Simulated scan of single mutants.
Amino acid sequence: MKKAITLFLLIAIIGLVSSQIQTKDKAKAVVQKDTLKKDKTTIEPEIVFNDSMIVVKGVFKPYKSNVYASYYANKFNGRRTASGKKFDNTKYTAAHRKLPFGTKLRITNEANGKSIIVEVTDRGPFSRGREIDLTKKAFMEITSNKSSGTFKVKIEVAN
């Protein structure tokens, strides 16, 4: 009987010691993961306001091309957006379904090559087949046909 109890206690002690060794190894692994240096080679875009033009110096990464853009109706002016900001149709903002709020985008009209820089402040568009909603000011600045409601664009995200 004493041999059985001694054997049981020995197995229990070995189990505890091995579990402590494993947790120490895991803790070391976590510490090693956290001490890895992060890559800080990305360049933040710098926005420069000239007399009549906004120039963005920085890197833009292609996101999607050959997708449709539309613009907000005037009835949304003054309402709150999904980000909590007040919507203003005279600013350079946009609505996108997935991109995070505050993301800077370069939207280029594929027909004429004109582009504009906008910031994502809302969710939408909720119409199938459209990728992004622009404010009326941004839309009219890059469209070639002022009477159209949509056109194909290329979307690039600022790094």
Rank of each mutant, 00 (worst) to 15 (best):
K2V: 15
A4F: 07
T6G: 12
L10E: 05
A12K: 04
S18V: 14
S19I: 12
Q20S: 14
T23F: 12
D25A: 15
K26L: 15
A27L: 14
K33R: 13
D34H: 10
K38I: 15
K38F: 12
D39F: 07
K40N: 12
K40G: 07
T41L: 11
T42D: 09
I43W: 02
E46W: 03
I47C: 00
I47P: 01
D51N: 10
M53S: 14
P62Q: 10
Y63D: 10
K64G: 00
N66L: 03
A69E: 06
Y71Q: 10
A73G: 15
N74E: 15
N74V: 10
F76V: 13
G78A: 06
R79V: 02
R79I: 02
T81G: 06
A82R: 07
G84R: 03
K86C: 01
N89M: 13
K91F: 05
T93L: 05
A95Y: 05
R97C: 03
F101W: 11
K104S: 05
I107D: 04
I107W: 03
K114G: 00
S115W: 01
I117G: 01
V118T: 15
V120Q: 08
D122A: 05
G129W: 03
I132C: 01
D133M: 02
T135V: 10
F139H: 04
E141K: 15
T143G: 06
S144C: 00
T150F: 09
V153G: 03
V153S: 02
V153P: 01
I155D: 02
V157R: 15
N159L: 13
